[in-house]
């Protein structure tokens, strides 16, 4: 009984409850994704025709140096942004999870608000700061103008993209980290501190191993959205900061090479699946211990 009713005793009940969401999922999620997958093995025929010819040419093309470089760059951007988010976010999550209840609620809202704020607006807000005539340069000009200060060109660069990626995704890292740290058994930490270990040692040898499942899910929840980011490289980056999502968009909206775009999109999907598989393997290993 704990595990729920046996479906054989309540077939109409199960069909009535699960039927609509499952039908929606299959028709409006599984089918579209499957079509993308099929297109990734297709060839362009004529102006608008696409034949599913079973070719691997689109994937082969994705591995050409030009695209391979963008792919590698996207992975590197995602890895670096995730790392920065972890380093910046871990102390924040730590402070929140050990704060007094009142302060904790305030801090949590502080992290959640940007999380709920429109991505486009947050990216746009950064433009106003980073532009040549933006607030940062204005401030520097005001402070160092007497010394012949020239505005720092920050916009349309890899630097701006990285700032944008970290800015947008930081809450994605902090929230799962907080969830993990909040569940820690505090007596273990107190024991470590009582026995003479310093705070940093305690964090490194006690907190990190205990929270490793939460850290893994924070990494996954940050890495995947960063890897597929479209807006930050599009609005903040220069010609040299294209990420894979921008290339995908171009295949569909301008270059009109859908099969190639589909193959690129599915490369992103494969990376996602690998990430999920790694994380659940990690979780199983921890559970087994």
């Amino acid at each position: 009984m704990r595990d729920g009713l046996d479906w054989r005793t309540a077939r109409p009940g199960l069909a009535g409850l699960l039927g609509p969401p499952l039908a929606w999922f299959l028709l409006f999620f599984a089918v579209p994704i499957a079509v993308v997958w099929a297109y990734s093995f297709g060839t362009n025929v004529g102006v608008a025709g696409i034949e599913i010819s079973g070719t691997f040419a689109n994937y082969a093309r994705a591995l050409e140096p030009l695209y391979l470089r963008i792919l590698a760059k996207s992975l590197a951007f995602a890895a670096l942004a995730t790392l920065i988010c972890l380093l910046v976010g871990f102390p924040v999550a730590l402070a929140i999870s050990f704060a007094a209840p009142r302060l904790k609620a305030v801090l949590l809202v502080g992290i959640m608000l940007p999380f709920w704020t429109n991505l486009l607006i947050r990216t746009y807000a950064l433009i106003a700061l980073l532009r040549d005539e933006g607030l940062i340069n204005q401030g520097l000009l005001w402070a160092f103008g007497w010394a012949g200060f020239e505005p720092l060109p920050m916009m349309n660069s890899n630097f701006a993209v990285m700032v944008g990626l970290v800015y947008v995704h930081l809450p994605f890292t902090v929230l799962p980290l907080y969830a993990a740290l909040d569940r820690l058994d505090r007596s273990l930490l107190e024991a470590s501190l009582d026995l003479g270990a310093g705070h940093l040692r305690t964090i490194w040898y006690v907190v990190l191993p205990l929270a490793s499942a939460g850290i893994a899910s924070a990494v996954l929840l940050t890495f995947i959205p960063v890897l597929g980011s479209y807006l930050a490289p599009d609005l903040l980056g220069g010609p040299d900061s294209q990420m894979i999502a921008n290339v995908i968009e171009r295949q569909f909206k301008r270059a009109n090479d859908w099969p190639f775009g589909a193959a690129l999109a599915f490369l992103l999907m494969y990376v996602t699946f690998i990430g999920i598989a790694l994380q659940s393997a990690h979780r199983r290993r921890i559970d087994a211990e």
């Binding site: 599984a30 079509v35 968009e249």
Partner: peptide, 25 residues
């Protein structure tokens, strides 16, 4: 597990899927 997929699938992939679906299927 399947119902969790739309949560994790990158937005750009889902956007592309919807574009093709409503253009061709």
């Amino acid at each position: 597990g399947a119902f969790a997929l739309p949560i994790v699938v990158p937005e750009i992939c889902m956007g592309v899927a919807m574009l093709i679906f409503f253009a061709r299927v």
